[in-house]
C-alpha cells in the first residue's frame, strides 16, 4: 500500500510537470487557448493527489484503501462527465475541451492506479 501511494504520488507529480511543460510550449508557440486547457488538465493531478491522501488517511487496510480511492476516483470525474455531456449538447466548445482535458487526466490516473495495484 505504501509503495502504491509513493509510486502514485511520483506519477502524479511527473505527469503534472510534463503537462505544464507542454502548456508552456504551446504558449511559446502562440497557442494560449490550447495551453489553458492543458493547465486545467495539470490541476487534476493535484486533485487526485488530494484524493489519494484522503483515502490513505481514511483506511489502514490495503484493500479498503484501494476500494476507497477507486470510489473517490470515479465519483469526482462523474461530475465532469455530466458537465461534458451538457456542454456538448449546448455546443459550448470551450467547456467541452476543458472537461475533456480533465477527464483525460482522470482516465490516465485511474489506469495507472489499476496497473500499480496489480503489481
Amino acid at each position: 500500500m505504501k509503495t502504491v501511494i509513493e509510486n502514485m504520488n511520483k506519477f502524479l507529480e511527473q505527469r503534472k510537470a510534463e503537462v505544464l511543460e507542454e502548456a508552456a510550449r504551446l504558449i511559446a508557440d502562440e497557442r494560449k487557448d490550447e495551453s489553458n486547457f492543458l493547465k486545467a488538465k495539470a490541476n487534476i493531478y493535484d486533485v487526485f493527489k488530494a484524493l489519494l491522501g484522503a483515502s490513505s488517511k481514511a483506511c489502514n487496510d490495503k484493500n479498503a484503501f484501494y476500494a476507497d480511492f477507486k470510489k473517490r476516483a470515479e465519483t469526482v470525474p462523474a461530475v465532469w462527465r455530466k458537465s461534458l455531456e451538457e456542454a456538448s449538447r449546448h455546443g459550448d466548445t470551450k467547456k467541452v475541451l476543458t472537461e475533456e482535458a480533465k477527464l483525460s487526466a482522470a482516465d490516465e490516473i485511474i489506469a495507472k492506479f489499476d496497473e500499480l495495484i496489480k503489481m
Binding site: D33, E34, G91, T93, K94, V96, L97, E100
Partner: peptide, 10 residues
C-alpha cells in the same frame, strides 16, 4: 476535432 470546433466558434 473538438479543438478545431472551439477555434472555429471563436
Amino acid at each position: 476535432p473538438a479543438t478545431i470546433s472551439f477555434h472555429l466558434k471563436k
